[in-house]
């Protein structure tokens, strides 16, 4: 499934290519010397139960706005060159891509820090919800570790 890599903040139904996303960010600057990525994927077990499907829902516009705030804050606070954040919504199978953060900088240290902060901040501030389907039914996940 193809997807455009033009926008640095995206919420989409389709899968994304990690390689394409990294290549797109490498084109941002010739001064990039370090890239850190975080890829979140669909895990089979949750609280001892086997999950058959995940489904993500978001609050359109607000979720994108919060992700853009995280991007801007990451650049400002950690001194990275740029960041892209892509989150999928809709049904997601076990093992599939869910979320990708790509932090690019002159050196590795700031990209590691920015990437870790960004995924924690995304979970804290971005209105995206996960529904897990198990053998006992469907449940909206409400913990935010």
């Amino acid at each position: 499934m193809s997807t455009t890599t033009d926008s640095k903040i995206r919420i989409q139904l389709e899968d994304f290519s990690v390689t394409d996303e990294i290549e797109a960010m490498k084109k941002v600057s010739r001064n990039i010397g370090g890239i850190t990525t975080f890829l979140g994927t669909g895990r089979e077990m949750s609280k001892g139960e086997s999950i058959s499907e995940l489904n993500f829902e978001h609050y359109p516009k607000m979720a994108e706005k919060k992700m853009e705030e995280i991007r801007v804050q990451s650049i400002k606070d950690f001194g990275i060159i740029d960041m892209s954040i892509i989150h999928r919504i809709g049904p997601i199978d076990i093992g599939e891509n869910i979320v990708l953060i790509v932090a690019v900088g002159e050196h590795r240290a700031e990209t590691f820090k920015a990437c870790e902060w960004a995924i924690a901040e995304l979970k804290r501030t971005t209105p995206i919800w996960k529904r897990e389907t198990t053998s006992t039914g469907e449940v909206w996940v409400q913990d935010t570790p």
Binding site: Y59, I98, I119, P127, I128, W129, K130
Partner: peptide
């Protein structure tokens, strides 16, 4: 106005 339950996007 939107009522938002605790978020659970991203990944652990």
């Amino acid at each position: 106005v939107a009522f938002l339950p605790p978020f659970s996007g991203g990944a652990k």
